[in-house]
Design a protein around this nucleic acid. Structure first.
Length: 285
DNA sequence: GTAATTTGACCATG
DNA sequence: CATGGTCAAATTAC
């Protein structure tokens, strides 16, 4: 069974790799990747059938049942193992629909977009205090439906909250985070987390600056029992579960939105991050 | 004791 | 001047 799991994780890894390189993938390469993924899962399935035959009527554990039922189940297991952070049980109500859209990192959002359009004067866009420093990466993420929905989704990095503010036109405050390792590694990564007015189960997460620390939260670091090489998530590393979720809930979850899916878009390859200019992003006041 | 979070104040920007 | 982003002291959690 472990071998099967290993193959499944291998397949998921391939999926993830495909996902991260999707935007610039040629059709040929895409086909090759899909073949590889299909073959990997097919092999896993073959192995699984052998295992099933072997076990036959043996009572299986709950988790094994989960894994054997179907691929979505496997995905869910994977999701749990790979940093679906909270709610280790009772995932049935969770429906972790996830990443839905990414806006190009270099685009400035208008206040109307930020605040849901209720800005007092839409014709005079207000900007952040700091000018756009190049990399901004907006992702919509679903909150967990169980447990504390106030917790932002785990994204495989450790963040330290440094501020929270009521935003005009927003029902919910915006939380400001920076990388825990900001000082240790001079890591400039930051993010803002805000719940949407019309959907409190969805967070708009705005990332700024790239991680230079390349360290991960304990949850995700400890997650895969199979030592999946995580080269694909070195940067912002959106949650592990995004693609898996897309696959398992694609038909019922976010469905049609998946075409705007390249959330792993490394378009913010600006590595301005390693250098904090004299302008002083913060800290050097 | 250390690290993280909270929260009011400060400040840059338009 | 209003607003959003950040700082930093106080508080809380581990």
């Amino acid at each position: 069974m472990e071998e099967v799991m290993s193959m499944i994780f291998q397949g998921l890894k391939l999926v993830k790799e495909l996902e991260s390189s999707l935007p610039e993938k040629s059709l040929e390469a895409l086909s090759t990747s899909l073949d590889e993924i299909t073959r990997t899962f097919g092999d896993a399935n073959e192995r699984l059938k052998i295992v099933l035959e072997f076990r036959n009527s043996v009572v299986v554990s709950c988790s094994d049942q989960l894994l054997m039922q179907n691929e979505p189940g496997l995905m869910q297991e994977y999701w749990l193992r790979c940093g679906g952070s909270t709610s280790s049980q009772g995932t049935e109500a969770m429906t972790p629909r996830q990443i839905m859209a990414v806006e190009d990192g270099r685009r400035n959002l208008t206040p109307a977009e930020r605040s849901g359009g209720s800005s007092s004067n839409p014709s005079t866009p207000r900007q952040r205090r700091r000018k756009n420093e190049g990399g901004e990466h907006v992702v919509l993420m679903a909150a967990l439906r169980t447990g504390n929905i106030n917790l932002p989704p785990d994204d495989n990095h450790t963040w330290r909250k440094y501020g929270q503010k009521e935003i005009l036109g927003s029902k919910f405050p915006r939380a400001y985070y920076r990388c825990t390792h900001q000082k240790l590694y001079n890591c400039p990564a930051k993010k803002q987390v805000q719940r949407l007015n019309d959907d409190p189960f969805t967070f708009r997460v705005t990332y700024r600056g790239s991680h230079t620390c390349h360290t991960y939260s304990t949850a995700s670091a400890a997650a895969p029992t199979t030592p999946v090489t995580t080269s694909f998530s070195l940067d912002y590393g959106p949650p592990f579960f995004d693609m898996a979720d897309a696959m398992m809930f694609g038909s019922s979850g976010i469905g049609a939105n998946m075409d705007i899916y390249p959330f792993n878009d490394p378009s913010h390859h600006d590595d301005h991050c390693y250098r904090r200019s004299e302008d002083g992003d913060d800290g050097d006041k």
